[in-house]
Amino acid sequence: MRGVLSDRMGAALLMAPLLLFLILAYAWPFLGVVKWSFTLPTPGLGQYQALLTDDLVQSVFIRTLRIAAIVTVVSVAAAYAITVVWVRGSPAQRLIAEFCILVPFWISVLTRAFGWVALLSNRGLINTWLQSIGFISEPLTLVRNEFGVVVGMTHFLIPFAVFPLASAMRSLDDRVLLAARGLGSSRMRTFWTVFVPMTRSGIIGSALIVFVFSLGFFVTPAILGGGRSVMIAELIYLRIFQSPDWGLGAAISVVLVLFVGALMALLFRYVKPKQLI
């Protein structure tokens, strides 16, 4: 290759198939969606006005933001703990942590959602066990509500939250932690006043990536929410396929894409793309 093509030409050629695919399968159809949002059922800004007044759409938006926020806090906190073990634990601890992080990746999101249903439903493992030991008399409602959605989404998103955190923790200079201890700081205090603040960029990157993923979640809320805890992606689906209202569905899509786009722009101010893998 060298001598025939410049490096830049080579890189462009290697990226071309993916770019072409993204344009044809993603950008071009999305432009169609944008067009629908301004033209269906009648041309104009009517659908965007409806977004501002429609109580259902607004309640779904607020629920989506709320669930995404809760999932973000829980996922990042859980991911932080497991990443500390993965990056700084003993070799055996690292292996166990790595196993916990990677195994969920190999199981489909659908399988995991149904798995949680089997665990959390009224006659599921958790309720029957709690009843059998006499801890509760009536089954707890653990699915078909926001709780189930949060559990399923958190479980799915923890591995994604791990990578930016791991990258921040790996680049941390050990001597700074030694310095803190040498100056008289206990392990606990060193963790909270030195270690955590020094991994700030990882926390921000991790939180943004989980939040962005949560906003567009479809399968998990659809299954674990059981239609009672509808999130934005499911609402778009319902508007397009159930109550044909393509214009409104398209307008919601456009708003969601713009919002996510803005968050991604924010994300890349704090983290380099390669830190997310």
Binding site: L178, A179, G182
Partner: peptide
Amino acid sequence: RPAEQRAAGMVFQGYALFPHMSVEANIAFP
């Protein structure tokens, strides 16, 4: 005796300052 109870002052190679703290906060830490 663990390091934090010995409290010897230590200057590391590469200084190991706390990057998220100001000069003042670094010196105030101990």
